[in-house]
Protein backbone atom coordinates (compact mmCIF):
# COMPACT_ATOMS: atom_id res chain seq x y z
CA UNK A 1 0.00 0.00 0.00
CA UNK A 2 2.70 2.42 1.05
CA UNK A 3 4.47 1.98 -2.25
CA UNK A 4 1.33 2.89 -4.18
CA UNK A 5 0.77 5.89 -1.93
CA UNK A 6 4.22 7.11 -2.73
CA UNK A 7 3.41 6.98 -6.43
CA UNK A 8 1.56 10.22 -5.86
CA UNK A 9 4.24 12.94 -6.00
CA UNK A 10 2.25 15.30 -3.77
CA UNK A 11 2.05 12.70 -1.02
CA UNK A 12 5.71 11.93 -1.55
CA UNK A 13 6.59 15.62 -1.16
CA UNK A 14 4.64 15.80 2.11
CA UNK A 15 6.42 12.70 3.40
CA UNK A 16 9.82 14.14 2.45
CA UNK A 17 9.03 17.42 4.20
CA UNK A 18 8.15 15.53 7.37
CA UNK A 19 11.01 13.03 7.24
CA UNK A 20 13.85 15.30 6.18
CA UNK A 21 14.42 17.18 9.50
CA UNK A 22 14.56 13.89 11.43
CA UNK A 23 16.83 12.34 8.86
CA UNK A 24 19.14 15.35 8.99
CA UNK A 25 19.32 15.18 12.77
CA UNK A 26 20.05 11.45 12.62
CA UNK A 27 22.80 12.04 10.04
CA UNK A 28 24.44 14.72 12.18
CA UNK A 29 24.31 12.43 15.19
CA UNK A 30 25.76 9.50 13.24
CA UNK A 31 28.59 11.69 11.93
CA UNK A 32 29.34 12.98 15.43
CA UNK A 33 29.60 9.44 16.76
CA UNK A 34 31.61 8.16 13.78
CA UNK A 35 34.03 11.08 13.66
CA UNK A 36 34.65 10.77 17.38
CA UNK A 37 35.49 7.11 16.86
CA UNK A 38 37.60 7.84 13.80
CA UNK A 39 39.75 10.44 15.54
CA UNK A 40 40.05 8.16 18.55
CA UNK A 41 41.20 5.22 16.43
CA UNK A 42 44.89 4.30 16.74
CA UNK A 43 47.31 5.23 13.95
CA UNK A 44 48.59 2.44 11.78
CA UNK A 45 52.05 1.23 12.76
CA UNK A 46 53.22 1.55 9.15
CA UNK A 47 51.16 4.36 7.64
CA UNK A 48 50.75 6.67 10.62
CA UNK A 49 47.84 9.13 10.54
CA UNK A 50 47.30 8.78 6.76
CA UNK A 51 45.34 5.61 7.41
CA UNK A 52 42.51 7.86 8.59
CA UNK A 53 41.83 8.78 4.96
CA UNK A 54 40.24 5.33 4.87
CA UNK A 55 37.34 6.62 6.97
CA UNK A 56 36.25 8.78 4.06
CA UNK A 57 37.61 6.72 1.20
CA UNK A 58 35.90 3.42 1.96
CA UNK A 59 32.38 4.81 2.64
CA UNK A 60 32.62 6.94 -0.51
CA UNK A 61 33.56 3.89 -2.58
CA UNK A 62 30.69 1.94 -1.04
CA UNK A 63 28.22 4.69 -1.89
CA UNK A 64 29.52 4.99 -5.45
CA UNK A 65 28.50 1.37 -5.98
CA UNK A 66 25.39 1.51 -3.78
CA UNK A 67 24.13 4.43 -5.84
CA UNK A 68 24.47 2.51 -9.10
CA UNK A 69 22.57 -0.36 -7.52
CA UNK A 70 19.82 2.02 -6.50
CA UNK A 71 19.71 3.51 -9.99
CA UNK A 72 19.39 0.01 -11.43
CA UNK A 73 16.30 -0.62 -9.29
CA UNK A 74 14.93 2.76 -10.36
CA UNK A 75 15.62 1.90 -13.99
CA UNK A 76 13.56 -1.29 -13.62
CA UNK A 77 10.88 0.85 -12.00
CA UNK A 78 10.93 3.17 -15.01
CA UNK A 79 10.94 0.52 -17.72
CA UNK A 80 8.89 -2.28 -16.19
CA UNK A 81 6.53 -0.76 -13.64
CA UNK A 82 6.33 2.75 -15.11
CA UNK A 83 6.46 4.10 -11.60
CA UNK A 84 6.19 7.91 -11.86
CA UNK A 85 8.85 8.51 -9.21
CA UNK A 86 11.34 6.00 -10.59
CA UNK A 87 13.06 8.24 -13.09
CA UNK A 88 12.96 11.12 -10.61
CA UNK A 89 14.86 8.88 -8.19
CA UNK A 90 17.29 7.83 -10.92
CA UNK A 91 17.96 11.38 -12.06
CA UNK A 92 18.45 12.69 -8.52
CA UNK A 93 20.90 9.89 -7.76
CA UNK A 94 23.28 10.43 -10.69
CA UNK A 95 25.10 13.57 -9.46
CA UNK A 96 25.30 12.10 -5.96
CA UNK A 97 26.83 8.90 -7.25
CA UNK A 98 29.28 10.88 -9.36
CA UNK A 99 30.18 13.08 -6.37
CA UNK A 100 30.82 10.15 -4.00
CA UNK A 101 32.83 8.33 -6.66
CA UNK A 102 34.81 11.53 -7.19
CA UNK A 103 35.49 11.79 -3.44
CA UNK A 104 36.61 8.18 -3.52
CA UNK A 105 39.04 8.87 -6.37
CA UNK A 106 40.44 12.04 -4.79
CA UNK A 107 40.95 10.51 -1.35
CA UNK A 108 42.45 7.47 -3.04
CA UNK A 109 44.93 9.70 -4.85
CA UNK A 110 45.80 11.59 -1.65
CA UNK A 111 46.26 8.28 0.13
CA UNK A 112 48.32 6.86 -2.70
CA UNK A 113 50.79 9.71 -2.71
CA UNK A 114 52.45 8.86 0.66
CA UNK A 115 51.96 5.10 0.20
CA UNK A 116 53.04 4.55 -3.38
CA UNK A 117 54.91 7.78 -4.03
CA UNK A 118 52.47 8.70 -6.81
CA UNK A 119 48.93 10.03 -6.98
CA UNK A 120 47.69 7.39 -9.33
CA UNK A 121 48.52 3.84 -10.31
CA UNK A 122 46.55 1.82 -12.82
CA UNK A 123 45.62 -0.66 -10.13
CA UNK A 124 42.65 -2.87 -11.01
CA UNK A 125 40.42 -1.55 -8.26
CA UNK A 126 41.20 2.13 -8.86
CA UNK A 127 40.79 1.74 -12.57
CA UNK A 128 37.36 0.10 -12.26
CA UNK A 129 36.21 2.99 -10.08
CA UNK A 130 37.53 5.46 -12.66
CA UNK A 131 35.56 3.72 -15.41
CA UNK A 132 32.46 3.87 -13.21
CA UNK A 133 33.06 7.59 -12.68
CA UNK A 134 33.23 8.15 -16.44
CA UNK A 135 29.95 6.25 -16.82
CA UNK A 136 28.33 8.47 -14.18
CA UNK A 137 29.47 11.55 -16.09
CA UNK A 138 28.06 10.02 -19.27
CA UNK A 139 24.67 9.69 -17.57
CA UNK A 140 24.82 13.31 -16.43
CA UNK A 141 25.60 14.32 -20.02
CA UNK A 142 22.63 12.26 -21.22
CA UNK A 143 20.25 13.96 -18.79
CA UNK A 144 21.60 17.34 -19.85
CA UNK A 145 21.25 16.68 -23.57
CA UNK A 146 17.55 15.85 -23.66
CA UNK A 147 15.22 18.45 -22.24
CA UNK A 148 12.05 16.33 -22.02
CA UNK A 149 12.41 14.34 -18.75
CA UNK A 150 10.32 11.32 -19.78
CA UNK A 151 12.30 10.74 -22.96
CA UNK A 152 15.59 11.28 -21.18
CA UNK A 153 14.37 8.97 -18.39
CA UNK A 154 13.82 6.01 -20.74
CA UNK A 155 17.22 6.44 -22.38
CA UNK A 156 18.98 6.86 -19.05
CA UNK A 157 17.21 3.79 -17.63
CA UNK A 158 18.40 1.62 -20.51
CA UNK A 159 21.93 2.95 -20.17
CA UNK A 160 21.86 2.33 -16.40
CA UNK A 161 20.79 -1.28 -16.87
CA UNK A 162 23.41 -1.88 -19.53
CA UNK A 163 25.93 -0.31 -17.18
CA UNK A 164 24.83 -2.56 -14.32
CA UNK A 165 25.34 -5.61 -16.53
CA UNK A 166 28.61 -4.26 -17.82
CA UNK A 167 30.23 -3.15 -14.58
CA UNK A 168 31.06 -6.72 -13.41
CA UNK A 169 32.40 -7.51 -16.89
CA UNK A 170 34.49 -4.35 -16.83
CA UNK A 171 35.74 -5.22 -13.36
CA UNK A 172 36.67 -8.72 -14.50
CA UNK A 173 38.41 -7.46 -17.67
CA UNK A 174 40.34 -4.86 -15.75
CA UNK A 175 41.46 -7.47 -13.22
CA UNK A 176 42.66 -9.69 -16.07
CA UNK A 177 44.35 -6.75 -17.84
CA UNK A 178 46.04 -5.72 -14.63
CA UNK A 179 47.41 -9.14 -13.62
CA UNK A 180 48.73 -9.41 -17.15
CA UNK A 181 50.64 -6.17 -16.85
CA UNK A 182 50.99 -5.72 -13.10
CA UNK A 183 54.25 -3.87 -12.46
CA UNK A 184 56.10 -5.12 -9.40
CA UNK A 185 56.39 -1.71 -7.75
CA UNK A 186 52.75 -1.46 -6.70
CA UNK A 187 51.86 -2.25 -3.13
CA UNK A 188 48.44 -3.74 -2.58
CA UNK A 189 46.12 -1.92 -0.21
CA UNK A 190 44.95 -5.06 1.55
CA UNK A 191 46.86 -5.19 4.78
CA UNK A 192 46.32 -7.65 7.61
CA UNK A 193 42.81 -8.13 8.97
CA UNK A 194 41.34 -4.93 10.34
CA UNK A 195 41.42 -4.48 14.10
CA UNK A 196 38.05 -3.78 15.82
CA UNK A 197 39.33 -0.40 17.07
CA UNK A 198 39.33 0.68 13.43
CA UNK A 199 36.55 -1.53 12.12
CA UNK A 200 33.83 -0.12 14.42
CA UNK A 201 34.43 3.57 13.53
CA UNK A 202 34.67 2.53 9.88
CA UNK A 203 31.27 0.84 10.00
CA UNK A 204 29.84 3.84 11.87
CA UNK A 205 31.26 6.15 9.23
CA UNK A 206 29.76 4.03 6.46
CA UNK A 207 26.39 4.21 8.16
CA UNK A 208 26.71 8.01 8.54
CA UNK A 209 27.62 8.38 4.86
CA UNK A 210 24.68 6.22 3.83
CA UNK A 211 22.33 8.35 5.93
CA UNK A 212 23.82 11.45 4.32
CA UNK A 213 23.21 9.93 0.91
CA UNK A 214 19.59 9.11 1.70
CA UNK A 215 18.96 12.63 3.04
CA UNK A 216 20.59 14.28 0.02
CA UNK A 217 18.78 11.94 -2.34
CA UNK A 218 15.36 12.70 -0.87
CA UNK A 219 16.07 16.43 -1.02
CA UNK A 220 17.28 16.12 -4.62
CA UNK A 221 14.16 14.15 -5.55
CA UNK A 222 12.01 16.86 -4.02
CA UNK A 223 13.87 19.52 -6.02
CA UNK A 224 13.49 17.50 -9.20
CA UNK A 225 9.73 17.10 -8.69
CA UNK A 226 9.40 20.84 -8.09
CA UNK A 227 11.57 21.58 -11.12
CA UNK A 228 9.29 19.42 -13.29
CA UNK A 229 6.23 21.19 -11.93
CA UNK A 230 7.75 24.54 -12.84
CA UNK A 231 8.40 23.21 -16.32
CA UNK A 232 4.83 21.95 -16.68
CA UNK A 233 3.43 25.25 -15.43
CA UNK A 234 5.52 27.17 -17.95
CA UNK A 235 4.40 24.88 -20.77
CA UNK A 236 0.81 25.51 -19.71
CA UNK A 237 1.53 29.22 -19.61
CA UNK A 238 2.77 29.12 -23.21
CA UNK A 239 -0.34 27.16 -24.21
CA UNK A 240 -2.66 29.53 -22.41
CA UNK A 241 -1.11 32.52 -24.12
CA UNK A 242 -1.58 31.00 -27.55
CA UNK A 243 -4.89 32.60 -28.36
CA UNK A 244 -3.92 35.99 -26.97
Amino acid sequence: MAWIDLANPTRFLRLVDRALPWLTALTVFAFAYALNGAFGAPDDYQQGATVKIMFIHVPAAWLGMFCWGMMTISALGTLVFRHPLADVAAKAAVPLGAAFTFVCLVTGALWGRPMWGTYWVWDARLTSVLVMFVMYLGLIALWRTVEDPTRAGRAAAILTLVGALNLPIIKFSVDWWNTLHQPASVVRVDGPAIHPSILIPLLAMTLAFTLLFVALHLAAMRNEILRRRVRTLRLLQAQGARGA
Partner: peptide, 18 residues
Amino acid sequence: VALAEIADLPAGYLSAGQ
Protein backbone atom coordinates in the same frame (compact mmCIF):
# COMPACT_ATOMS: atom_id res chain seq x y z
CA VAL B 1 2.94 40.35 -31.79
CA ALA B 2 1.15 39.65 -28.48
CA LEU B 3 3.99 37.71 -26.89
CA ALA B 4 4.73 40.10 -24.02
CA GLU B 5 3.11 37.88 -21.38
CA ILE B 6 5.40 34.93 -22.15
CA ALA B 7 8.55 36.98 -22.67
CA ASP B 8 10.50 34.98 -20.09
CA LEU B 9 9.70 31.48 -21.38
CA PRO B 10 12.24 29.50 -23.38
CA ALA B 11 11.43 29.60 -27.10
CA GLY B 12 11.38 25.78 -27.08
CA TYR B 13 8.05 25.88 -25.21
CA LEU B 14 6.32 27.90 -27.93
CA SER B 15 3.86 26.60 -30.51
CA ALA B 16 4.59 26.96 -34.23
CA GLY B 17 2.39 30.05 -34.49
CA GLN B 18 4.02 31.68 -31.47
